[in-house]
Amino acid sequence: MAGVVAAFAYVGTVDPNAPGHYPVCPLLHYTGLYCPGCGGLRSAHAFVHGDFLTAFHDNALAVVGYPLFAVLWVVWMLRAARGRPVRIELQPVHLWILVPLLLIFTVVRNLPFGGWLHP
């Protein structure tokens, strides 16, 4: 948890919109296509600063993932504190939902009508 908090604190402090602080996405650099993670740092920066609309615009999938990750982390910590098994396993149905969701998000954000999903 300390690592996640430290990473968010760093991204909140060092603006990814300023050039030279973070590397460029290789897929975007070489192909001009946005990957599912493109805009993730800008999204995290805006999220830390409470600008949720900008965070959602920069990477909608990441903004949905932040609270989901936090909830899963709290569930994991509570189960560990109570001495219960601490395993959260992905079932095949979860992967069958997650992979197409990532693919659809990636394709839509690279199509002309998906411009609102560009970081």
Rank of each mutant, 00 (worst) to 15 (best):
M1W: 11
A2Q: 13
G3F: 08
G3A: 10
V5Q: 04
A6N: 07
A7C: 03
A7R: 09
F8D: 10
F8L: 12
A9K: 12
V11Y: 03
G12E: 14
G12Q: 15
G12Y: 15
G12I: 06
G12P: 15
V14Q: 00
V14E: 01
P16M: 01
P16N: 02
N17F: 14
N17W: 15
N17T: 15
N17M: 06
A18L: 13
A18S: 08
H21Q: 09
H21A: 00
H21T: 02
P23D: 06
P23Y: 01
L27R: 09
L28C: 01
Y30H: 13
Y30E: 06
G32A: 04
L33D: 10
Y34D: 05
C35L: 09
C35E: 15
G37M: 13
G37E: 08
G37H: 09
C38M: 08
G39R: 02
G39A: 07
L41A: 01
R42N: 05
S43R: 15
A44G: 09
H45R: 05
A46L: 07
A46S: 13
A46P: 13
F47P: 12
F47T: 12
V48D: 11
H49W: 13
G50I: 07
G50D: 07
D51G: 06
D51W: 13
F52A: 03
F52V: 09
L53E: 07
T54A: 08
F56Y: 15
H57P: 10
D58R: 15
N59Y: 05
N59Q: 07
L61K: 10
A62P: 04
V63T: 06
V63D: 03
V63L: 02
Y66E: 03
P67N: 02
P67Q: 04
L68Y: 02
F69T: 15
A70H: 03
W73D: 00
W73C: 04
V74K: 01
V74E: 00
V75P: 02
V75S: 03
V75N: 01
V75F: 00
V75E: 01
W76Q: 15
W76T: 08
M77P: 00
L78V: 15
A81H: 12
G83N: 02
G83H: 04
R84A: 07
R84L: 12
P85Y: 01
P85D: 14
V86W: 00
R87E: 08
R87A: 10
I88G: 00
I88Y: 00
E89S: 14
E89K: 09
L90K: 03
L90F: 12
Q91P: 06
P92R: 15
P92Q: 10
P92S: 12
V93R: 13
V93E: 11
V93K: 11
L95C: 08
L95M: 14
W96I: 08
I97W: 14
L98F: 11
L98M: 11
V99A: 06
V99T: 12
L101V: 14
L101D: 01
I104N: 00
F105E: 11
V107I: 14
V107D: 08
V107G: 03
V108E: 05
V108T: 06
V108H: 05
R109S: 07
R109L: 07
R109A: 03
N110V: 08
N110M: 06
L111C: 10
L111V: 12
F113V: 12
F113S: 11
F113Y: 15
G114D: 13
G114I: 08
G115K: 05
W116Q: 07
W116C: 08
P119N: 11
